[in-house]
Amino acid sequence: MAELIVVRHGQASFGAGDAGSYDRLSDLGRRQSEAAGAALRAAGWIPDRLICGTLDRQRETLAGMGFDGAVEEHPGWNEYDFHDLLAVRFGGDVPDPVRGDRKTHFRTLREVILDWQAGGLEGAAETYAGFAGRVAAARAHATDTTAERVLVVSSGGVIGQLVAASLDAPAKQMIALNLQVKNTSMSRFIFSGQRFFLHEFNTTPQFATPEGAELLSYS
């Protein structure tokens, strides 16, 4: 069976006030990207198809991994717009602790995503059903191939959705998985035709040494 590895992008700029400011890798994110590519090469895993979403942090991560080949882009791999969801939740005035305090931010994000999944947040740019549908379309695009090793760079929410769907888990498991996904972690799937199975979730061989462990981040 063929393999699909989906890598979360490297660390971006937590606490940025707008989506454009967040959509750039930090210095740590660039180092994480290089380490992830080196780990795959050390394992002898060289992709024969490269895909990412259309977000800059995803493009930068894939470029930083250092693999040769044409890069395809599919918007289905883009993250849900959490800036928009929070703005809708708070009527456009997101409290400072939600923007800048990690614990408050992620607790609030979990509550907002569960509300979104239940049909709340009317007026958001994207519904949860629309998000789930485009992730499914991105998966179908990536696995409709003769390639044996497909590498995708995406984002935490997409990876959470992809894993939950592959396990036929309840929708609420998406955010539980999302919040576990480390920067540049690797989730591996195997596929053949319509068959699609999770093989590994959120692995980080690049952080297995004491030096590598210093690169670990979740946001």
Rank of each mutant, 00 (worst) to 15 (best):
A2T: 14
R8K: 10
A12I: 04
G15S: 07
G17N: 07
G17H: 06
S21A: 15
A39K: 00
A43W: 02
P47D: 08
L50E: 04
I51S: 01
C52A: 00
L55F: 02
D56P: 00
R57F: 01
R57E: 02
T61N: 01
L62F: 00
G66I: 03
V71K: 03
E72S: 13
E72Y: 05
P75D: 13
G76H: 02
N78I: 04
D81A: 13
D84V: 02
A87Q: 10
G92P: 06
V94K: 07
V94C: 07
P95V: 06
D96L: 12
K103N: 09
T104K: 12
L109F: 11
V112F: 01
V112K: 04
L114I: 11
A118V: 08
A118L: 02
F131K: 02
A132M: 02
V135N: 10
A136L: 10
A136F: 03
A140C: 06
T145S: 15
E148A: 15
R149T: 15
V150R: 14
V152C: 11
V153E: 11
V158A: 15
I159Y: 00
L162Y: 03
L167K: 09
A171K: 14
L177W: 02
Q180W: 01
Q180D: 09
N183A: 06
T184D: 07
R188G: 02
F189V: 11
S192I: 07
S192A: 15
R195T: 15
F196D: 12
F197Q: 14
L198A: 09
H199D: 15
G212W: 00
L215A: 05
S219N: 12
S219F: 08
S219R: 12
